[in-house]
Write a protein that binds this DNA or RNA. Sequence first.
DNA 1: TGGCTGACTTTCG
DNA 2: ACGAAAGCCAGCC
Length: 110
Amino acid sequence: MKSANFFNDVYEVVRLVPKGRVTTYGAIAAYLGSKGSARMVGWAMNNAHSYNDVPAHRVVNRVGLLTGKHHFAGPNRMQELLEKEGIEVVNDKIAGFKERFWDPSAELAL
DNA sequence: TGGCTGACTTTCG
DNA sequence: ACGAAAGCCAGCC
């Protein structure tokens, strides 16, 4: 198990996302570099069900749209979790996404 | 080993 | 402005 080194990196970054903030698949992929494409990040999230500390609901597509909400326990579970953290969600998308956007390459920029 | 998959992103029409 | 297609790369069968 956990042969997937790439997945582990994705989960680690997602866990680092501050509460009340969101990030994108592309941002994570860019932070990881050549390790994988944006699709791989989304696919990694699919595997995230095996983990219990991966806030996948904080990960959205580049426009702040909750594309992965369908993969949650409930279709509105993702939005509910986001609103619970103080993130306003309208029409399945993050309100003021630009302000809520958390870029690992910028915040972690080491 | 080889080929399909995927919760994205970008570009052409 | 909207729609469709290609690119991307590691994991899984």
